[in-house]
Design a protein around this nucleic acid. Structure first.
Lengths: 218, 218
DNA sequence: ATTACTAGTGATCGAGTAA
DNA sequence: TTTACTCGATCACTAGTAA
């Protein structure tokens, strides 16, 4: 894309002009809103015009701008790229297979700074163990992308450092819990670790390869 | 927003990393995809890191990147700004009041270059007259924003020039037609002009202030 | 392979100002 | 008031190259 930096101005104008109306404004007004000089706005507008992205009529009494065909196409394209990405699916359920794994999760989540943040940010004190669920990577992404991550800060002890986590509130068979994902994920990408105030494995009698369904909490 | 131009790289990475996964790549690979130098990518990544938007671990064997809390927040914000704008509503119906107006529309749409494009791009030869419909500006925007405009090119005659138009395919009481909006709208923004292969006023017996409902055609 | 420093070039910015 | 030109200053880019 040529002149990437002008794209912000195009988006700004698209919003102002509601994408298909024309607006009457001035380079000075825009420059104040965008924190750049009047001259820069003037030049960038002419750039956008010469790229065929806007129509621009300038006069000593201000300027009239509307988004041209190519400009609208560009904004639409940009939006749908993001939309496709964000709303890959409306999935708010995902099924997985229980895996007992190595029990490393317990060590991590038992760290006091994590526990304090779980209590504060998730609203519960987790059982000191995690449930590993093997899921399809694609579905997991769809599942999580519609959800707002809760950020758990990392910290350091004398011995080592513990990285930041992302948590997603869920319900597993109606019981509250959260998916925990390390910010720098080393683990298998098709496995998620779930914490919950209750001992899920016991409560639901999960065995290796048991099926479990989790739901996103809005 | 500081360092606007780096935002594109952030979006790029967000897509690559699926917003919450980390990716292993190299500055060279990214530089090829974005058509900039390896050095620029290296610098921009360090910029993003120092802005707290990504986490970055570089080594002579490549780099590992994940989007940090602030970065995700920024991408989300950007997306929802656009989303709000594009999908203000799912409205695909709008009601309006018939207004006979001055009959200027007939003069415009009767121009041969317009007529040829109507036939080609809309698929019908319009009746030589327009139906003016007074609608709520807000609702009109919602109505049209979900629709893909069809662009009708302007042209010049010896006497004067005729501007470009945007057309939106609609159905009015089941009859095909299109909303016509001049690219540089001078007319009342709460009035739309509708063309159709049939004489709508006669067909439906419209009188001044008759109510009419139109539907977007996907 | 990599990352990233240095240095030189080229692009962008904005103050001053004309129209 | 405007828009937009000139031009010096600043910033960003990339080639070369070290590690």
């Amino acid at each position: 894309m040529q002149k990437q930096e002008n794209f912000f101005l195009l988006l700004f104008l698209a919003k102002k002009a509601s994408l298909f109306n024309s607006i009457k404004t001035s380079t000075g007004k825009i420059s104040k809103e965008l924190n750049v000089s009047q001259q820069t706005v003037s030049r960038k507008l002419r750039d956008l015009k010469s790229q065929g992205l806007i129509t621009l009529v300038s006069s000593p009494r201000g300027c009239e701008i509307s988004i041209a065909e190519n400009g609208i196409a560009l904004v639409r394209k940009h939006f749908f790229e993001l939309k496709k990405f964000f709303s890959k699916s409306k999935t708010n359920e995902i099924e997985g297979t229980v895996s007992f794994g190595l029990g490393e999760g317990r060590y991590y989540i038992s760290q006091k700074p994590y526990l304090e943040q779980f209590k504060k940010l998730l609203g519960f004190k987790p059982f000191l163990g995690t449930l590993n669920l093997v899921v399809e990577t694609e579905k997991l992404e769809k599942f999580l992308l519609n959800s707002k991550p809760i950020f758990i800060q990392g910290f350091s002890t004398k011995e080592r450092s513990f990285g930041s986590l992302k948590a997603f509130k869920i319900k597993i068979f109606g019981v509250q819990g959260a998916i925990i994902i390390p910010e720098r994920a080393k683990h298998q990408k098709n496995t998620v670790e779930i914490i919950s105030p209750v001992f899920l494995r016991k409560k639901f009698g999960f065995k290796e390869k048991s099926k479990a369904k989790i739901m996103l909490e809005k």
